[in-house]
Structure formats: structure tokens, C-alpha cells
Nucleic acid binder design. Structure first.
Lengths: 195, 195
DNA sequence: CGCGACGTTGATTTGCCTCAACGATTGTGG
DNA sequence: CCACAATCGTTGAGGCAAATCAACGTCGCG
């Protein structure tokens, strides 16, 4: 079960587990290999899984009435991805979740997650802690969107996540930061001239 | 202890409590009366409390480098407010939290919250659930900001929270929705003409 | 090799901001 | 309780950041 080592390590950053607990936890997981451009969540269908990325990159995005895409999350190894609104409330998704690269993910389904928390209450704590982190993250993003211009938001992103910035397609990044791909292209152009 | 009834009811929407548990919970709380325009959190100081509003209205906002205000949260009775980044990590705040009306709030401090979860693990679940809700809420807000124009966002807000829209000052609402007070004024003007 | 997806570049447009000046409302001290 | 100041909201003119549109380059894949 070598493939589960990363996720067990991840969990142990937040809570301590006995060998038995690890075993039970791992027994609820499943591994899935996703090809680039493949979807793991689509609107209308209930999102069954919370997914932890072992390798690869994925994004979750909304398509609005005019057909424009808006990226909510971009995730790479050691991060989670899902349509959490759909997952947590077990209601139809509104987002697409798509692989940006060939990816390997570990999934837990909603029902197993409930059982896990029943049986090992420490996991209640685990999910609380990671949700708090995500919440804090989103709040910072909202503030950044409200208080900063496009170029400044781009700079901030590049300095915080240089790995992601150079790895994902430009339309994904632009639609995450909240502007058009053309504009992102112009920003980048401006920068290379400056140096 | 009549004043604590609303918050106990709130908690019981998520978890069941025995009388003893309620008593212990309530023993950790304190009531505070805040005058309009008074702050309960200021930048640089660590945010000590999570606050539940019994009556009144409050907002949390950031002041950027140009001196502009950006409202992160507007809360009224039966909602929470805090600088959660500061509270959860017990680090210096970046936000102001200010009363928009004379308000009565119930507060729990960070340390008590930890003790509460130790002693009554059900509260671990409670805080997980409310954090999940907040998370889902923020994600929707990000999507709304990305995919909708100013007027549409305003309409959405008014139809979802008519009570709040007509109750808070316009600069609070505008800076929450992400545009200028002047522009909000123009939007409203346009509407009254249409009808 | 050729086609489709992705990125670039420039011209034009637009949604919203900024600035400024003016009403309206609130609250406060005399 | 009134007068006047401060705060809050309104209106219009002009400006700018970023969108849109269109056309063209380029890369990777079947």
C-alpha cells in the first residue's frame, strides 16, 4: 500500500494515528488514474468524492451563462480538489473538475467520510482543521480580488506559487485570477520587456 | 441566563447537548455591548474572540495601501463575526471589526474554544460544520465576483438578503460587493426610474 | 504533415472609478 | 430643542483598466 503513504503523511500533519487507525482509514480510500482533459465532476451529477492529488494537476471551474469559464481552484500534488458545495451537501454539482495533466488521485466518498469520523473522532478534528485552512485561504483571495488590480494579483500569485504558475495552461490561470487570457498575455509581455 | 438562549439554540441546530453540557458551554461565554462605530478588532492586535451577534449589525473590513476600505463580512443577529485569520491562528489581525449599529454580542475566546472541544468532542463537530458552511458561502461569493457584473451582484444580494441591504450603510454594502459608493448610488437610481 | 488547441498582438469599446460639487440626514452641544 | 457640523448619499464629467473582437503565430498531437 505504498501509494497511500503521501495521504497518511498528510493526515498526520494534523492528527496522530495508530497503525490500526491508519489501516482503517486506508481501507476506505481508492486510487484513480485520470487522463489529461478528463472530468471527475460534472454539473448536474452529485459529486461523490473528496479527492487528494498524488501527482498531476487539476482545476475546478464554472461555466457562466455567456459560456465563459471561471476557475475556482487549481490544485497540484498534496492538495485536495472537489466541488465541495456538491460534495458536502450531496447535491448536484455546478462545477466541472478537470485534469490539467495526467493525474493520480486518492478518493474518499461522502459516506465513508462520515463513517470515518464516527469511528475515529480524531478525523472530525482533521476535517475541521483543513476546512479552516481552506476558509482562511478563500478569505484572503476575496480580499486580494477586492483590493488589488489584475497585474498585482498576478505578481502575487507567481511569487506565492511559482511552480503552479509555470505549469498550468494560461487560460486556467487567467480565469482563476479573474481576467482574460489576452490580458494575461499582455502582462507577461510587459514584464519580459522590462528586464 | 436568558441571554444565552439564542446561542444555545444555534448550537443545537448542529449538535445535541445535555443540560450539563449547555451549562459548561455557557460558562465559557461572555456578553458584550458594543456601541455603533466601536471596534472589537483592530489591525496589529491579536483577535481574541469569536463573536456571535445577539442583536445589531457588524462588519469586518480591510483598509488597503490607498486607504480604501474593503468589507469582507457583514453580519447581523444570529451570525458570527471575527477576523478569523487572526483568531484561528492567534496572530495579529489585519482587519477592523466595527459595529454598524449598537449591538449585543456573545464572545468565546480562543483558549476556551479549545477547552470546549477537548471536554465535549461534539463541539469539534459543531465547529467543523459551521466552518464548512462558511467555506461554501465564500466559494459562492468568489464565483459570483468572477462571473457577474456589479449590478447583477447587487440584485443577487438584495434578493438574497433584503433585510441586510436596507439596513446597513451604503458604503458598507458597496465595499462588500466590490464597487464604489457612487456606483451603487447610480445603480439604485436606475432601478427607481425603471419602475 | 496538417489540424486543432493555445497563445499573442493591436484596435476598439465599455464598465466602473475618480474627482468634484452639491443635497440630505443624523447627531451633538449650546 | 434647535442650529449647525459632520457624515452619508447623489449627480455629472472625464478617465482608465481591462474586456472584447479579430486576425494571426505556434506548438503538440493524431
Amino acid at each position: 500500500m505504498d501509494e497511500f503513504i503521501p495521504i497518511v503523511n498528510y493526515v498526520e500533519r494534523y492528527i496522530q494515528l495508530t497503525e490500526d487507525e491508519k489501516e482503517y482509514f486506508v481501507s476506505l480510500l481508492r486510487i484513480s488514474r485520470i487522463k489529461k482533459k478528463q472530468y471527475i465532476v460534472q454539473p448536474e451529477f452529485v459529486c461523490k468524492y473528496r479527492s487528494y492529488i498524488i501527482s498531476g494537476a487539476m482545476r475546478a471551474y464554472l461555466v457562466d451563462d455567456k459560456g465563459k469559464e471561471h476557475t475556482v481552484v487549481i490544485s497540484i500534488e498534496d492538495w485536495w480538489i472537489s466541488d465541495f458545495n456538491s460534495y458536502l451537501n450531496q447535491e448536484p454539482a455546478t462545477l466541472f473538475v478537470e485534469a490539467l495533466e495526467d493525474s493520480v488521485i486518492i478518493q474518499i466518498d461522502f459516506h465513508s467520510e462520515q463513517m470515518l469520523m464516527e469511528r475515529i473522532p480524531k478525523f472530525e478534528r482533521f476535517f475541521r482543521l483543513i476546512t479552516q485552512r481552506s476558509f482562511a485561504f478563500l478569505q484572503k483571495r476575496i480580499l486580494s480580488n477586492l483590493s488589488k488590480g489584475a497585474e498585482e494579483r498576478y505578481d502575487e500569485f507567481v511569487s506565492k506559487y511559482p511552480a503552479i504558475a509555470n505549469r498550468v495552461p494560461q487560460y486556467a490561470l487567467a480565469s482563476y485570477l479573474g481576467f482574460s487570457t489576452e490580458f494575461l498575455s499582455k502582462i507577461r509581455n510587459r514584464k519580459t520587456k522590462k528586464t
